[in-house]
Design a protein around this nucleic acid. Structure first.
Lengths: 192, 192
DNA sequence: GCATAAAACTAACGATCATTAGTTAGACTT
DNA sequence: AAGTCTAACTAATGATCGTTAGTTTTATGC
């Protein structure tokens, strides 16, 4: 039965993303995942091909969330400085809604092997390049002070990429307030 | 002979830190470390007690670098804003001189078990608390704009903590220039 | 050169783990 | 009720790995 198989497969992936995040990919055993569901490890293979497949699927799913979000913002007709604000909002939103996925994307992608590894790296670099373009353009439009582009990009991206871990300890806070404060902190400083 | 034992032990630790950093703690085998040195895995145990001991030693070593650095800056008679600049310099310096250690401290501490885990966490939290104090004090001294302390602290600390990975791709750049740019980027924005 | 200790080696153990093969129970279709 | 398919189970395999025991080689001090 298709629908039941899908939901079981999805629950394997959801539980996998949570355990991978909490204990790391290699440290998490199929036993761990299975017992969390309440079945035997061998039974997992009725739904998935391998442990590695779970990781690959989760990472690609996460990457696509960023690809889609970037595409929408990039192709909008906003000023570049506003695009930057939207990008911050995207990261906050994804960190809040997909915390486990974000953690995996930062930490566990090293377990990818080619060709997935290169594919993932390409998506990441593409995202970074788009981010850089928007930052540079905001500078050219005069909305941002003249600073070292690479360092500023690194600082902003790193803060956004690790935001999920900070949010973990402050998940009582309002998502919109967080976005506002983050915009003020990351852009307020470099705005002209 | 003591001195030769020490240097072999130290080389195990140095190679361990490099491999742990490149491939992760669990993925790195004693075989990997041994063959990098040119001996058999079992021979490692003439110099160390366990694989885990290597990790613990490296993490504590790294943590102490920060404890010492913080102690010196904290007890100086500088203005708080200058202390912040010194802290940025400390991170740049440690990232450049101990890149592998910095990577381990960010990623592999999760493999610690109690009591080392709590001990490490305590050092980290203590460092963070000192950083927060200096930031708040700089605000009270009027050298920094009124912004959300927690978000600003998170943003600055995260950027500094991950700087090692950025430096990895830009290791041709002058350490002093990097420090200057980072100060401008992290503090220039929030300065009054 | 001889004694001693450090540090290498070989061999093996025990545990864990991802995965496969083969089997059984249960649910839905006809 | 019979037949079919899904998804669970048991059992086993092969591989890896950290570590230990016991032995041999190498280097050092006298």
């Amino acid at each position: 039965m298709i629908s039941k198989d899908l939901s079981r497969k999805e629950s394997i992936q959801r539980i996998g993303s949570n355990l991978f995040r909490k204990h790391g990919y290699t440290t998490t055993s199929m036993q761990d995942i299975a017992s969390e569901i309440g079945i035997k490890p061998a039974s997992l293979y009725n739904h998935i091909k391998s442990k590695h497949e779970i990781l690959v699927h989760l990472l690609m799913q996460g990457a696509n969330l960023f690809v889609d979000g970037m595409q929408e913002i990039k192709s909008s007709s906003l000023r570049s400085i506003e695009k930057l604000e939207r990008l911050i909002g995207l990261h906050v939103h994804l960190s809040v809604e997909h915390t486990d996925l974000m953690a995996l994307m930062m930490v566990e992608w090293r377990h990818l092997e080619n060709p997935e590894r290169e594919q993932y790296a390409a998506l990441r670099e593409n995202y970074e390049a788009n981010f850089r373009n928007i930052l540079v353009q905001a500078m050219q439009e005069g909305d941002i002070r003249e600073i070292d582009t690479e360092i500023a990009l690194f600082s902003i991206l790193t803060t956004l990429q690790r935001f999920y871990s900070w949010y973990d300890k402050h998940s009582d806070l309002n998502s919109l307030d967080l976005e506002k404060h983050l915009i003020q902190c990351l852009l307020g400083g470099i705005r002209v």
